[in-house]
């Protein structure tokens, strides 16, 4: 009886839309800005699947339909880049220098720390794109033959952490230039961090949203280069 309801495309789509809608609604009503609809939806859906003894494959019948939209979602990331094109040209050296340093430190620190702490190879690969915006992070995860699920969770943790510590960290490091503030937030903690950059000011917000796309593309290029060189 239960599987008649769950083993359909409709089940996964309905459950995902319902969860996301209700949590987003609760977020707006309660003004709890730290509520993360993606993370909470994932947790609630996993609980429902476990408690209801519903097979993952049943959920994924509908889930894969939504998952298929990752392609177009990645494509439209070009739009924020296009909108910030003037800033991109104006600050090209700072952007190139800052973002390459950031992307390199992300990859190197994951590899070094993972090996120091004894993480297995699969985990190490899955964490490499933790600072990258989710749709491209998933692409990088697949390029590295890692697991999407772990990559996504690491991306969400990064975003929440970045958003909460960025203002304090930047003050501590005496970063005063709005370009440096925005660029570092977008590079380290993608769209979730950018919500904090928006509170800081117009330049910070624009640089942060620009950095999301540039840092993601830079990471993809660095990973391709690493694979060509025979690492990973």
């Amino acid at each position: 009886m239960a599987s008649i309801t769950t083993n359909t495309h409709l089940f996964g789509i309905l459950l995902t839309v319902g969860c996301f809608y209700l949590i987003t609604l609760a977020k707006h009503r309660s003004r709890l800005n730290w509520l993360n609809p993606l993370l909470l939806s994932v947790i609630i859906i996993i609980c429902i699947l476990i408690l209801g003894d519903i097979p993952y494959d049943h959920y994924m019948k509908g889930g894969s339909v939504i998952h298929a939209f990752l392609g177009p979602v990645t494509v439209v990331l070009a739009l924020p880049l296009y909108r910030q094109r003037k800033l991109l040209v104006q600050h090209k050296y700072a952007i190139i220098g800052g973002i390459i340093s950031g992307v390199a430190s992300a990859i190197i620190s994951v590899v070094v720390l993972s090996r120091l702490l004894g993480l297995n190879d699969l985990l190490e690969r899955s964490l490499i794109p933790h600072s990258v915006t989710t749709p491209i992070g998933i692409s990088v995860s697949n390029m590295l033959h890692a697991t999407e699920g772990i990559t996504i969770i690491s991306i969400i943790i990064t975003g929440i952490l970045g958003a909460s510590i960025a203002p304090m960290m930047l003050k501590l490091l005496r970063i005063t230039h709005p370009v440096a503030k925005g660029l570092s937030i977008g590079t380290s903690s993608h769209a979730l961090g950018t919500t904090k950059a928006i509170e800081m000011g117009e330049t910070e917000a624009a640089m942060s949203s620009l950095a999301i796309g540039v840092a993601a593309l830079t990471t993809v290029l660095v990973v391709i280069l690493m694979q060509m060189l025979g690492w990973y």
Binding site: P37, L38, M60, I66
Partner: peptide, 28 residues
Amino acid sequence: GFFFIPAGVSIIVSYHALDGFYFETVLV
């Protein structure tokens, strides 16, 4: 965020990779 939910739920089949390394993974 909506479009990443199914990919996030997929951790239900891959969390074994985290066994014994939950804390270390978050630390990294």
